[in-house]
Amino acid sequence: MKVQVLYKSKTGNTEKLAKAIYAAIPDPDKDIQRLEGQKNYDMGDVYFIGYWTDKGTASFEILDYLGELHNKKIALFGTCGFGGNEKYFQRIEENVKAFIGDDNEYLGAFMCQGKMPIQIRERYESMKNGENDAKVEALLRNFDEAMLHPDRDDMEKAAVFVNSVFEKLSGEGANC
């Protein structure tokens, strides 16, 4: 079975996660590539597709690519600046997995927090107006926490996710 890791990364967070996922894949027939306009939809049998989060979903390029895959096994992974909220991660997963066609097998998703560009922090700081200071302080605390991610713990959890995907595949009689 051929395993393909494809990803889009804006700040390096998703690329870091993609490399950890690639390293954890036990199958020797594997490849990793940044998604840069590829139109080849037969790069593998199993796909790990990674994305950074923008307004609660993935980039159009990721969504378009997902929509063109057929008869594949697909696992998702992603990063987002806002962390610590499993429901938010699940909402992002739902928004992205909606683009996976019914003829594919969905294998699950892994999400973790990732650092954001400093311009986001500057925007948060400029939002303070005396009435919303508590909310802005919470955004700033989240920003500062995000600067530490993805961290070693996130990479270990990504490897556990990969192992769970391959356990599912081996349970189906896949050659892993």
Rank of each mutant, 00 (worst) to 15 (best):
E15P: 11
L148D: 12
D29C: 01
E36Y: 13
R91P: 00
A109T: 12
Y51H: 04
D27I: 08
E167Y: 10
Y41Q: 00
D133N: 03
F89G: 13
N104G: 07
K8T: 09
A109L: 14
K135N: 05
K87E: 03
M43I: 05
K157N: 07
R141I: 11
L76S: 00
Q119L: 13
L63A: 15
L148N: 07
I32E: 01
A109G: 00
M116H: 11
E36Q: 15
E15T: 11
Y106M: 03
M43A: 10
R91I: 11
E167A: 13
R152W: 04
Y106P: 13
A138I: 10
R141H: 07
Y88T: 13
M147K: 09
F89Y: 12
K97F: 04
T53N: 13
W52K: 12
K19H: 15
E125T: 14
F82D: 01
A138Y: 01
A23K: 10
G44D: 14
Y65A: 08
N40K: 07
E137P: 04
E36W: 15
R34N: 15
D54S: 10
I120Y: 11
K10M: 09
Q33K: 15
Y22M: 12
Q38I: 10
K16S: 03
N85V: 10
I62W: 05
D133I: 02
V136W: 05
N163L: 12
F48Q: 01
K39W: 11
A75C: 08
A146K: 05
N163K: 05
F161D: 09
E61R: 04
G56A: 13
K115Q: 15
Y51N: 00
E131I: 12
E125L: 02
A174S: 02
N13E: 05
N142R: 03
L35E: 07
L107F: 09
Y88E: 01
G44S: 04
G83L: 11
S170K: 08
S9A: 00
A58F: 01
Y7K: 06
M116D: 06
K39M: 07
A158T: 01
S170C: 00
H70A: 02
M1Q: 09
D27C: 08
K10N: 06
I120M: 12
K39E: 09
I25E: 03
N71E: 07
G173Y: 00
A146T: 08
F99W: 15
L76A: 08
G84Q: 14
K30L: 02
E94D: 11
T11P: 14
N13M: 01
K128Q: 08
L107N: 05
Y22T: 12
K72Q: 06
R141F: 14
I32K: 10
F82M: 06
N132W: 04
L35W: 12
